[in-house]
Simulated assay, not measured.
Amino acid sequence: MKCIVGLGNPGRRFEDTRHNIGFMVVDELMKRHQLSLDKKKFNGQFTTHVVEGEKVIFLQPLTYMNLSGESVRPLADFYNLNPEDIVVIYDDLDLPNGKIRLRQKGGHGGHNGIRSMIDHLGTKEFKRIRVGIGRPTTPQPVPNFVTEPFTKEEWVLAREGIYKAADACDAWFSKPFEQVMNEFN
């Protein structure tokens, strides 16, 4: 069993913001596989589906970004998921807008959603797909920047990052993650 977790913040206020790029990738996967997040439990919205002969869980935590682990841990416990079978998709300020990076494991890198995941899962051993959102070009606090929508110009590159991250997830359904990393990094 595999699990795709897209990090973000719930509610209309955050819908198209940079911090919600993980949600946007899961939304893209829902569209591609003609699915909907039809279950609400574990402080999240999710669905299960068989892809390439394997059960896959798609999850958007509804706990707000900084508490994402509070949703993922109970879901992982209920479905008896190993952390190595979880891919977490989230925004990254240090990558240019639209670029993606895949990793097998690692630290939180200052990202509070990933910090929460590590704290609640008790391990750093889960896969990640970081989607670049770039850094602010004007002096402004980072929390303001990440909770603002992409500009029209930024959206063109952001959409490319969303599609590439969804492509990487689709590839992982049939290939080892290390091979997917080699293809997409």
Rank of each mutant, 00 (worst) to 15 (best):
R115I: 07
T63V: 01
V87S: 14
N112I: 05
T63I: 02
Y64M: 13
M65L: 09
L67D: 14
D85H: 15
A76R: 06
S71M: 02
P83M: 09
S71R: 03
H111P: 11
G109S: 08
P61I: 06
V72I: 11
D92P: 12
Y64R: 10
D77V: 12
N82Q: 12
A76D: 00
D92G: 11
D94A: 13
N80W: 02
H111W: 12
P83I: 09
L67E: 12
N97M: 14
Q104N: 15
D91A: 11
I57G: 01
Q104A: 14
P83Q: 12
D119K: 13
M65F: 07
G107Q: 07
N112T: 08
K105P: 07
Q60Y: 02
F58H: 01
D77E: 15
D92Y: 10
L59P: 00
M117W: 09
T63W: 00
L81D: 00
R101K: 15
F78Q: 04
L67R: 15
I86H: 13
A76S: 10
G109D: 05
L59H: 01
D92W: 10
G69C: 09
V88W: 01
Q104F: 03
E84I: 04
K99I: 00
I89E: 03
R73N: 05
N82F: 00
G107C: 07
L59G: 00
T63M: 00
N66R: 05
L81E: 01
Q104E: 15
I118E: 02
V72F: 02
Y79I: 07
I89H: 11
L81P: 05
D119N: 13
D91C: 12
H108L: 08
D119C: 03
N97W: 00
I89L: 11
G107T: 11
D77Q: 13
E70G: 11
G110W: 04
D92E: 14
K99A: 03
